[in-house]
Design a protein around this nucleic acid. Sequence first.
DNA 1: ATAGGGTTAG
Length: 440
Amino acid sequence: MSSISLLLRRAFSTSAAPSAVANYNNIMRHEADLKKVVETFKKYTQDSNFRKRASFYEHTVRRLSNTKNFTLIEEILEDQKKYKDITDEGFTVRLITLYGKSGMFDHAHKLFDEMPELNCERTVLSFNALLGACVSSKNFDKVDGFLRELPVKLSIKPNVVSYNTVIKALCEMGSFDSAFSLLDKMEKEGLKPDLISFNILLNAFYKNSRFSDGERLWAMMEIHNVVPDIISYNSKVYGLILESRIQEAVDFVQEITSKGLKLDVYTYTILFRGFCSDGKYLGEAKRWFDEMMKTKCPPNHLTFAILLRYACKNNDFHFGSRLCRALFYRRCRLNEVGLLQKVVDGVVKQKNIREAEEVLVQGSVPNVKSLSVITGIKVQDRPFEDIQFKPKGSKNSSRTGFSQKNQRQTCLSGNQFVSSASCMQILLRSMFKLLADLSV
DNA sequence: ATAGGGTTAG
């Protein structure tokens, strides 16, 4: 009990004087009303320093895009046209990219077309931004036409980035051979395929069960003097796992290490996913997890989700609770709270009360019943009365790490408490949310 | 301006 309230107190206490930037972050994070978010954004962007901060644009637009508020996205991005920055190609390119990422391809295209009248020069940068917007908005089929028409029309010479983007689009459409043949086309245009060109192709081939096509690329890379990096190798590990060649994948990973390359979180996570197919790899999974810790390669929420499910499935709750501790330490959010509950239940069943306690205290699994069973705390009607929180309509469930099922009981009005169970849930959810926010 | 993870299970 005391540890939990300590955690809560820490989570709810306000931190020291925020700068303008932190201030903005605070306002935006806690503001549930998206109309107000938009107003605040527009107000802040009157400041020219603020307009240089690409990440604010990204955060705000991503949030509006996640909730499908496309009108509001249009409102803030179109509003930017009134600033002199719009004559700076870099600034406009960012807006085009944001439209693309929000899936608003027509807006991206329109802005590109408007650039001359906005007094903004168009070079290969904005051309590439337009191509990129096709890809991110999944208008893959448009890319090829743009590559054929626009360079002539606008006297822009495509560069490696342009071609890489087209290769990506063709791969996404499943036109692997056309994508591959663009390497030749590039060379004819006097451009050298680079690491990114090859990584796009490696990924596409191995991921789409074209293992032998993938294998052929390595020799080509050598010819082009392109040195593979960990992203290149990860594609192959993925390919091996996809073909259930687990041991070969392990051997290949060893080989990567012996080349002096550092494995990254992707490498491990791909391996773990391969191990999951069979309980016999549990020891191997632990060994690689230790390796991860030893080499200071921090696991992320996906790594934890995969390993936790694997541990639970094989009744290894000791490993499970160890994973939970690492998970809380890293302040990762799981999109499946049920997994934590499984660990607690498993540990309790095996009578490792102490471990269960730790998982609970650190992770606050929102199950009041197991909470009171394990800790012996009797849940009162009005716990934590000293803590105020805003329950109304905070809808960003994705940040809290709680499933939709757990969300539906949010029915408080004002600061009134309801039953102890849902109160506890809401309280814990708020705590999770705050912990998540603090870790950003 | 371009590159990379998942899907459980009742």
